[in-house]
């Protein structure tokens, strides 16, 4: 039972990290950032490349993953998002371009490193910690620790800093935020780069825990998106709750139906969330009809 709780906690931590990364972009820029799945993979492979050069330096690997993710985020902003924004593209345009970027990233990774599964050198440094009959690895402990630290930092940053207020203002109304002197474009760029750097580090941690392969990012993105949409982007506490719910659902579902259906179970949870929220959307529509 305790082991099941530990498994739920580990999955919830990964879900929370990806959810924070995804919702940082989704909340501010208002588009479904598919490419984040590719950035997670790119972060993992950057760490793999760094560890091939300096095998016993996990800190350098973390920097490599964050830097790789961040640089990819900046590249996407400059080459894809900014031109789309200048042309006044709708959210669907951003979504399609992001889908294209995801395909380009994962296939570029496959082209450079191949399709085969690889093991990070840092995984050998990981060892099992046993406590009260619960066994978790040091990498998994790092995932839980980073998730907790990220949640606390995000909560403090959003609630008590000027940058957090700027984020909230742009997410609420970008035009009005510009009127009061907030550089909305800068906020967009910072959100994208911060989200991408975090995604890169998540990629490294999951790769160190499991393995590295080009298909690593998409299931993680789906997990994070489910947690983010179960909660509410911009509210850290609801993201934590969302990550907890999706993790419990996924682990219980895997227990009943088998591990191979984990991804499908996550998607069914997301689908159920969307269907339940339909009532809210319908109510909003009815209100608009009445106003009309």
């Amino acid at each position: 039972m305790l082991q099941l709780f530990a498994n739920v906690l580990i999955t919830a931590s990964v879900a929370l990290l990806v959810a924070v990364s995804f919702s940082t972009v989704y909340w501010v820029a208002r588009f479904f950032h598919f490419a984040l799945g590719g950035i997670i993979v790119a972060g993992a492979y950057c760490a793999y490349a760094v560890l091939n050069l300096v095998p016993s330096s996990p800190i350098l690997a973390v920097f490599g993953a964050a830097l790789g993710g961040g640089l990819l985020g900046v590249t996407l902003e400059v080459l894809v998002h900014r031109p789309l924004r200048l042309r006044g593209a709708a959210g669907s345009g951003f979504l399609l371009a992001s889908l294209g970027a995801y395909i380009v990233i994962i296939n570029s990774v496959s082209l450079v490193w191949g399709e085969q599964v690889r093991i990070l050198a840092v995984a050998r440094l990981s060892h099992v910690i046993s406590m009260f009959g619960v066994r978790i690895t040091t990498v998994q402990a790092c995932e839980v620790g980073l998730a907790a630290a990220t949640a606390i930092c995000a909560w403090i940053a959003l609630a008590g800093t000027r940058a957090g207020r700027a984020f909230r203002a742009v997410a609420c109304d970008a035009v009005l935020a510009r009127v009061v002197g907030i550089d909305a474009i800068l906020v967009h760029v910072v959100a994208l780069v911060a989200g991408s750097m975090l995604a890169g580090v998540v990629g490294l941690l999951v790769a160190a825990d499991v393995d590295v392969r080009p298909g690593l990012g998409f299931p993680l993105l789906l997990l994070g998106v489910t947690a983010a949409l179960l909660g509410r982007p911009g509210r850290v506490s609801s993201l934590v709750a969302g990550a907890g719910i999706v993790s419990i659902g996924q682990n219980l579902g895997a227990w009943f139906f088998g591990m191979q259906f984990r991804e499908a179970i996550t998607m069914l949870i997301l689908l159920a969330t969307l269907y339940l929220r339909r009532r809210v959307i319908s109510a909003h529509l009815s209100q608009r009809v009445a106003e009309f």
């Binding site: 894809v80 789309l84 593209a89 889908l99 294209g100 970027a101 296939n107």
Partner: peptide, 9 residues
């Protein structure tokens, strides 16, 4: 992927 991005832009 590139074609999708370019056409969308």
């Amino acid at each position: 992927g590139l074609l999708l991005i370019v056409v969308t832009i």
